[in-house]
Structures are given as structure tokens and as C-alpha cells.
Write a protein that binds this DNA or RNA. Sequence first.
DNA 1: ATGTCTTTTTCAAAAAGA
Length: 297
Amino acid sequence: MSVLKLATYNINGIRTRLPVLLEWLAEATPDIVCLQELKAVDADFPVAELRAAGYGALWHGQRSWNGVAILARGSVPLESRRGLPGDPDDTQSRYLEAAVHGVLVGCLYLPNGNPQPGPKFDYKLAWFDRLIAHAATLCNAGIPAVLAGDYNVVPTDFDIYNPKSWLKDALLQPEARARYTRLLGQGWTDALRARHPDQPMFTFWDYFRQHWQRDAGLRIDHLLVNPELAPRLLDAGVDRWVRGLEGTSDHAPTWITFTGYAATDDGDDYEMPPAPVITPIAPPKPAKAKSSKRKVR
DNA sequence: ATGTCTTTTTCAAAAAGA
């Protein structure tokens, strides 16, 4: 029986954080990684460095903001979807989906939504509704699936050091929390909470007011597994030590382990396929002046 | 209201997003 490790990590700028990312990959050796907030265009994705570290990658970048990627140790993820269905005018790179090591993996970066109320919060809720609609098909796909990423939602007051100073923040609003609950209602298991019902399990500590030093964190990075995968869960956790590194992201890698298929039972014997010819994918065309105000960004 | 950090435009300083 093999054990697979899948992690989600909001990297907060992949170029700046590359040394931290490589150090964590070498130490934690996850089999599958979902990254968010690349903050880089496709051409700037460090595919060669990751490949040298033993990881194949699929990525969807964007200038300045957003950007998501899926890494696979010793293989290249097979893309099944780029962007959520339901809004052809949405140009933000926030969703990527692929088959990796026998699991369907949805990597997501849900909009932050601040300030609230306002158009950014409206976009957050609309994006969440589109995620819920698509998640229903994944949950009932009949194959193992996971939805992993930065949800920008603190599910309950137990998932934050102290809700008082965050009550008006978009991450705690009832509308966002209700959507998270509705998503779980489809049959997903919140792996971190299921494995650790009695501990907050923070995944994010902002850079302000010494929140890391005081362990004043929030749990906003979530790994949701469908009914096919839930019985195979072994463990879940947060690699907090990464948050303490120099020049690190404000998030920490968050992971699950589960039983894999017998076909991959020699975890250290992966054979890297030949290097693919890298064809940078063109970023979405910027909206023309006449239509730039049309859509809420 | 603020706090910190990163990126962008454009070459210095400030705005914006988180």
C-alpha cells in the first residue's frame, strides 16, 4: 500500500518565494501540490527549477495578481479544466484542475472579497456560487477528487485566534460562511477539521502586528475530499515551520495523506518523463477600453 | 484606522491588493 501526500500552499509570489518553495518541497516531498497567488505571467513560471527538483507542473499565471498551479512529483498533471465554468468574461486566473496520481485535483484561489460590502465582495460570492455548481459534478464524479486551495473563508469562530477585530472582514461574513457550509453539504469532507476536531489548525498569519509571533492565525486554506477519497484519508496537517522561514509567504503549506494505488507503491522510484516542450500559454487578453468598466474585477 | 509586504509604473515614490 502506498501513501500519497497532497498539499495546498498560497505561495504569495512564486518568483520571490522560490527558495522557500524549493526548501519545503525537498523537506516535505509532497506528491501533489496546489499553489495559489503565483503573481507571475506564464512565461515567468519557474518550470526548469521545479523540474530539477523533481516536479512536473501545470500552471495558469496572470500579471501581478492571482495565478494557480498544480505540481506532481515525478510526473506531469493531466489538465482537465482551466477556469470555472459559468462566466466567460471572468479573466482572473483562479482555478485549475487536473488528474494526478489517480486523483482529480481542483486547485482554487477564491477571491478575498475585501472591502466589504462592495463589488469585490459581490465578485467573491458570485465566484463561490460558480464553484459550488461545478463542485457538485466533482463530488459525484464516482472517482476520487479533492478541492484544495485558499478559500478566503474562516468557516467558524473556532478557526481564528479571535474574531473581534475581523468581524467586518470579508473572510468572516455570514454569506461566505453559508456558502462554505453549502459546499460541504454536497458530501465533501473538510479533511483538516475532520482529522483535528479539537485544534484550530491555522494556515495563515498576516504580516501585521506580529501575528505570526503571537500565533494569531486563521484557517482559510482547505482540503475538501469527496466520498470516494474520504475513506482513504490517513492524516492531515499544517507545515507551520515554513511560515517561520526568512522571506516566506503569509500562508503555510497545508496537507493531507491518503492511501494511493498499488501501482505507485514505490514512492521514491518515480521516473520523470522526458522534458516536454514548453509552450507558454498566452495570458488572457486585456479588456479593451470600451469594455473595461463593464465587468467587476 | 492601523499594521506589512509585494508588485507595478517607470526610474522614485506612491498606489494597490491582500
